[in-house]
Amino acid sequence: MKELYEDAEVQKIEHEFKQLTSHPYLKEYIEEAGIEYDYILFMMELLLDSPLSADAKREQILSALLVQAAFVTHEKVETGGQEVLLGKKPRQLTVLAGDFFSSLYHSMLDRDVHAKVIPVFSDAIQKINEEKMSLHFCENESEEVLLSRLALVEGAFLKNIASFYQKPEAGSLAETFFLLKRLVHERNPKESCYLSAPANSIHAFLEGGIEWTGSWPAQSVEQWLTHHITRLQKELHQKLHTTTSIGNELLFNVLTSWSRDFIKAEIK
């Protein structure tokens, strides 16, 4: 898969992201922030026709990556007070690392040229936290509600930015794609730690409670995920062929790969 992201600009952004987020003490106790490469490609697509300078575009892309890194990092903070997995110091530093990434995202946007996009970012973060709260409390009265909440948590950020840059088709693609990616992630027991709000809520919806001691995912969850992964792959495939244009070739290639059935084979 990595060859899909081989591009000088992607590498430049990756390098800057690593420089920004690298902290010698944090590194000793917690995992370094991961890069969501697909975010880079989607952001490049959304900014393709923008009159912003290359530097300003890079700042917005880095900012989006930092928001994503803050979300992922804070999702690792365990629900209870006891240090089940993380341990005291890693828990403390996980909270602070997420806050650090949040402050960095804001600092990336501190030039006048980004003034109009700051409220777009903060509005999306608010929406996502509202939905995460609903997922956390497993308030999903139907499958549709659960899926739309998951789609919002995974895709609202890019969808908001897409709407700001008047690229609704790309926003809709992002929503389907990142929901698909989340379900694939949860379907893979090695990747899912079954601690995230999305994983908890899926399990609670299907099993009627969040208590789970067996191996993840449970059979019912696995079947449900497989069904929706297949459905979303088809949906992605369809959207990809009805979308008028995707200017970023790398993104087109990534989306095409994900809409094919090799993913299903891979996770099996």
Partner: peptide, 19 residues
């Protein structure tokens, strides 16, 4: 509530501050 509610609340309020 719990740690996760605190994390979401804090993140939500930070976003409000920036807004």
């Amino acid at each position: 509530w719990d740690n996760r509610v605190a994390m979401y609340t804090g993140d939500y309020i930070f976003a409000k501050a920036i807004e």
